[in-house]
Design a protein around this nucleic acid. Structure first.
Length: 298
DNA sequence: AGAGCCATAAACACTG
DNA sequence: TCAGTGTTTATGGCTC
């Protein structure tokens, strides 16, 4: 299989990878890292790293962390022209003062909170807590923002309510998750906001350097079989060629000009599924990256 | 000017 | 009963 892919910024940093994304339209998520021998019956999907500023999968912005990426700074992963394509032409505005209101909409905050959760679903109470924890502004803000959060959850098509299993769960209310079909839009908004508010202290302005091919760039995508997946995703199992396997192996390689997205030889991923896989990782990266930013100023 | 998006506030119903 | 949750409506600001 050889599919054209948008520029991707894998590998996702291990620290941002959490087990399971039970609610993606494909029941897949980037999970634990695995070491898989090269040369197996793998399919290679390569992509010429064409600059495309609006491409959802151009994730340089996600890596504008404060000096650190646990695995590989993206600047080393992406060719220089693409870095420039994702960099705002104008010098970015200075970072807002501490505890000022975050530039992110409530939808984005909710999105980040949910994506940062292990099971990609949270009760509203935990969404509150996540926001307060990561955006100190809301610690001292009046309670009206909670109303706004609930208002957003209810009104936005991006979020879906899941009934708790009352035989097992304790507590009020439902779980909330991100609708897979709206993830690209949410990511786009996040990316846009992030780009606009990013500081000058980012890695993508630095020259790109070749990245050696190492086994560290191999990722194992694990399926999670929790209750929600069985409950909500089972109806999509038939059409998902991956849904009956335990694991999907993905390898990410980088040369000076190409990125390689390597799939197992017997998996038949269509472009849509590949994009979903990317988005899964992107969403988690988004939450992680923005958390870094939040810790650095908001 | 108008549409669309977003934040905020408020009222109300439901639930544990 | 009460607090938390979820839904709906209204309003104003901002951007395109």
């Amino acid at each position: 299989m050889s599919l054209p892919l948008s520029p991707i910024s894998f590998p996702p940093s291990p620290t941002s990878l959490s087990p399971g994304s039970p609610h993606s339209s494909s029941p897949l998520s980037l999970g634990t890292t695995s070491h898989i021998p090269e040369g197996q019956n793998a399919q290679v999907v390569s992509q010429d790293a064409t600059p495309d500023q609006d491409d959802l999968t151009c994730l340089s912005w996600l890596h504008q962390r404060n000096n650190l990426l646990p695995l590989q700074p993206l600047a080393k992963m992406m060719p220089l022209p693409q870095q420039e394509s994702c960099t705002p032409a104008e010098p970015p505005p200075p970072p807002p003062p501490a505890s000022s209101k975050p530039p992110y909409s409530f939808s984005s905050l909710i999105f980040m909170a949910i994506e940062d959760s292990p099971h990609k679903k949270l009760p509203v109470k935990d969404i509150y807590e996540w926001i307060v924890k990561n955006f100190p502004y809301y610690r001292s803000a009046s309670g009206g923002w909670r109303n706004s959060v609930r208002h957003n959850l209810s009104l936005s098509k991006s979020f879906r309510r899941i009934q708790r299993d009352r035989t097992q769960s304790v507590g009020k209310g439902s779980f909330w998750c991100v609708c897979p079909e709206y993830r690209p839009a949410l990511l786009k908004v996040l990316k846009k906001t992030h780009s606009f508010h990013s500081t000058s202290n980012n890695l993508i302005n630095k020259p790109a350097q070749p990245c050696p091919l190492t086994p560290d760039h191999e990722e194992l995508v694990a399926m999670e079989s929790d209750e929600y997946q069985q409950e909500e995703v089972s109806r999509e199992m038939e059409k998902d060629p991956l849904s009956d396997s335990g694991y999907i192996e993905l390898h990410y390689y980088q040369s000076n000009e190409f990125q390689y997205f390597v799939l197992p030889g017997d998996s038949e991923l269509d472009l849509e599924t590949v994009e979903i896989l990317q988005l899964d990782a992107e969403a988690q990266e988004a939450a992680g990256s923005l958390l870094d930013l939040a810790g650095g100023g908001y």
